[in-house]
Design a protein around this nucleic acid. Structure first.
Lengths: 107, 107
DNA sequence: CAAACATATGATTAATTGTTCATATATTAT
DNA sequence: ATAATATATGAACAATTAATCATATGTTTG
């Protein structure tokens, strides 16, 4: 029994939903504040205030953006006393950013 | 004489401008219409009308988005008679999309 | 050259989104 | 328990942006 959208005349695209999620993921990388935040954690974990001071952003703004990064599983975190330390969630995050960099460096 | 922001206590970030450009690049991937368009060209080149029909989008919309993809050097194109055939510009585009997919597939 | 077809583009509009401000929650120290 | 510090979150506002509509540009055919 044919599934909806199984059209033999053209190469099948991944489900719209997957492409939608993919766009949502890139959207997260597509804001300079969030990219700066991600980049600030390239070497080591940082707490919210560290990031805010380092990047000259308000604590609130950083918190809001970290929530988005958390939701997309781009960062993980651990509590240590009053502070919460954030770090990149996995190597994919670095890879994606590095690929982007490489593209920019092209002729 | 120390420049503003040259703080030795933390690893230096790349120039703001580079990170800004990086965010702009990901912003281009961060729209589901554009991702669908890019994905439609994964296998082979397509002309504007092909894309519009395939993805059920207006010709105008596709053209507008292709202009953005062109500007970011994500697609290239060639004219053949009345039609203009678009294709992915290089392997980085595929790589970036694939990396994103991999991230989505994670546990 | 005119008609037809393919693509590009400018202007407008609706929807999305990042920042700010105010305030809430959570942890530690006194 | 209260104050102090660190982080999170809700609401409102300003700015960005994708789709549409109308029209322009470019190419081929009769």
């Amino acid at each position: 029994m044919a599934e909806a959208g199984t059209d033999k005349t053209v190469a099948k695209q991944p489900d719209d939903e997957i492409l939608y999620d993919l766009a949502e993921l890139f959207k997260v990388f597509g804001d300079s504040t969030r990219i700066k935040i991600l980049y600030s954690m390239f070497e080591h974990e940082l707490c919210v205030n560290d990031i805010a001071r380092l990047l000259n952003l308000s604590q609130s703004s950083v918190s809001h953006q970290l929530r988005i990064l958390k939701t997309s599983k781009l960062v993980k975190f651990r509590r240590d006393g009053k502070s919460i330390y954030y770090s990149l969630d996995d190597e994919h995050v670095r890879s994606i950013i590095s690929m982007g960099m490489e593209h920019l460096e092209e002729p």
